[in-house]
Design a binder for these strands. Structure first.
Length: 480
RNA sequence: CGGGGCGUGGCGCAGUCCGGUAGCGCGCGCGGUUUGGGUCCGCGAGGUCCUCGGUUCAAAUCCGGGCGCCCCGACCA
């Protein structure tokens, strides 16, 4: 048996990641540095993410719209912190139509500015509020070091932009959207996340407060998987987003923005994947079930295929995404390994013996080897599969949560934090330090404050660097 | 931007030191064989050897210029 599997995760995680992204057909290299081609199998995962989020956005009163890819350069400059945060990574169009443009156009790194400009026109009175808009779009940030899905020069995402009459309403919106991200991550992607607030240093350029969901990958590094910003009145003031209140007074709006990107595809890969490849959560898997026919040329091939087709139709009718692997050149063993690498949650084998006995072999991807294999009756196959899929969805989340919780350590002092970070774990520590302290920790350990979790202990204790009494704990980790 | 490396069929590489027929594995096509955990055999298609110039009877190979990419250090969904 020629073992031509991917590099083991345990051996070299980042190599494993790169290999699996290409081998599982999620993406392909692109001619442009820092960009990737998202292939159909990877794109379908993204479509699953889109569907899960879009449904939740609509359910909370948001509408989709689309704003231009190009932003006049002057817009970007209007919000002081925003320019500073984004200028190093902007791609700028200076020529078009064979001529130099009068004003260069920035390829959007995010759309607060153009959308803010539009909002200032759309909003006249308090009756126009709240304004709840989302767009699905591509954005460009000229990053130096890129990795497929995790950080690419161009990526796909959704960015929500809303305007409200009061700070509290904007804050409620910001938190609501973070909750939606967390719910989506756990329920659909089976990724447990920690909700919290970003430190001043990690805050979005131009925001009052930034909230985040942080997830732990299988190499124990943190991945910021979605963010929600309360922009205060910063953009409202820069773009004149104001309204006439009930008292006939001109007031600035309070705005928010929130985004989740194709990085989530990377999160799915790195949260659930194992040495054999991907393990996709059933709710996002392009194929939830793959049927592998076991056919002997000389024997009852047609009987096997008849059974396969009957079961396929039954599963499809039950709303299960099912695919029959009809490839003729490959042996069943090859197909088993191939689909395992590609993370299909359930494999259904049908061979001559199964036709004879009216049963089928079901193998679940999350439990490798014989332990995950069972003989089941063909009768009521869709119920059996549906239950199995639900169980896989649940156990992937449970497994990921147990793994994460095992690797978060409460630390009492800086020395212990260093040890914990050195070991690759996350450290939870009382914090009352400033930017300089935070920067220092980053320089010395490589870890950053991922967030101040919403969930705080009853007793916080003294800050691990200043020794002063602290009112909150922070979560430290090395991050992507 | 600083340090290291690499450009040779679709992918991964050898060949370069020592100039002389462009090769291997995977993949791809065809035929057969096999199929319940990565079958095997045969035949075949596919390459301006990154680029421009120089040396030479002769350059993937030697010399010079350019371009591109990858890896490691400061920013980021």
């Amino acid at each position: 048996m020629a073992e031509q599997a991917v590099t083991a995760q345990s051996e070299d995680f980042s190599r494993w990641y790169n290999e699996i992204v290409y081998r599982a057909d999620l993406a392909a290299p692109s001619p442009v540095r820092g960009c990737v081609i998202i292939k159909p199998y990877g794109y379908e995962i993204w479509e699953g993410i889109k569907a899960g989020l879009d449904r939740r956005f609509k359910a909370t009163g948001h509408q989709n719209a689309y704003f231009p890819l190009f932003i006049p350069e002057s817009y970007i400059r209007r919000e002081a912190e925003h320019v500073e945060g984004f200028s190093p990574e902007l791609a700028v169009v200076t020529h078009a139509g064979g001529k130099e443009l009068e004003e260069p156009l920035v390829v959007r790194p995010t759309s607060e500015t153009v959308i803010g400009e539009a909002f200032s026109d759309w909003i006249q009175s308090y009756r126009d509020l709240p304004l709840l808009i989302n767009q699905w779009a591509n954005v460009v940030r000229w990053e130096l070091r890129t990795r497929p899905f995790l950080r690419t020069a161009e990526f796909l995402w959704q960015e929500g932009h809303t305007a409200h009459a009061t700070h509290d309403e904007a804050e409620a919106e910001t938190r609501q959207m973070l909750d939606i991200y967390a719910e989506f991550a756990e329920e659909d992607a089976a990724i447990p996340v920690i909700k919290g607030e970003k430190s001043r240093m990690e805050r979005f350029a131009g925001a009052l407060r930034t909230y985040t969901i942080e997830a732990m990958m299988r190499d124990k590094r943190a991945l910021q998987s979605g963010t929600s910003h309360n922009l205060g009145q910063n953009f409202a003031k820069a773009f004149d987003i104001d309204y006439l209140s009930e008292n006939n007074a001109q007031e600035y709006c309070w705005t928010t923005s929130w985004g989740l990107s194709t990085r989530m595809v990377g999160a799915v890969v790195m949260t659930h994947g194992d040495d054999k490849g991907l393990r996709l959560p059933p709710k996002l898997a392009p194929y939830q079930v793959v049927i592998v026919p076991i056919i002997r040329r000389d024997a009852q091939a047609s009987a096997v295929m008849e059974t396969v087709e009957r079961l396929r139709a039954e599963l499809a009718a039950a709303g299960i995404r099912v695919h029959v692997d009809r490839r003729e050149g490959q042996s069943p063993g090859f197909k088993f390994n191939d689909w395992e690498m590609r993370g299909v949650p359930v494999r259904l084998e049908i061979g001559p013996k199964d036709v004879e006995n009216d049963n089928a072999v079901l193998a679940r991807r999350d439990i490798p080897g014989r332990a995950g294999k069972q003989f089941v009756p063909q009768a009521r196959i869709s119920d059996t599969v549906r239950e199995l899929l639900a169980d896989i969805q649940r156990s992937l989340l449970d497994e990921a949560r147990a793994f994460r919780d095992e690797h978060i350590v409460d630390v009492a002092g800086y020395a212990q934090l260093q040890e914990v970070i050195e070991a690759g774990d996350w450290a939870r520590a009382a914090w009352a330090g400033g930017d300089a302290h935070e920067q220092n920790i980053k320089d010395e350990t490589g870890a950053t404050i991922r967030c101040f979790p919403f969930e705080q202990p009853d007793q916080v204790g003294n800050c691990i660097v200043t020794g002063n009494s602290a009112d909150k704990v922070a979560l430290f980790a090395k991050a992507y």
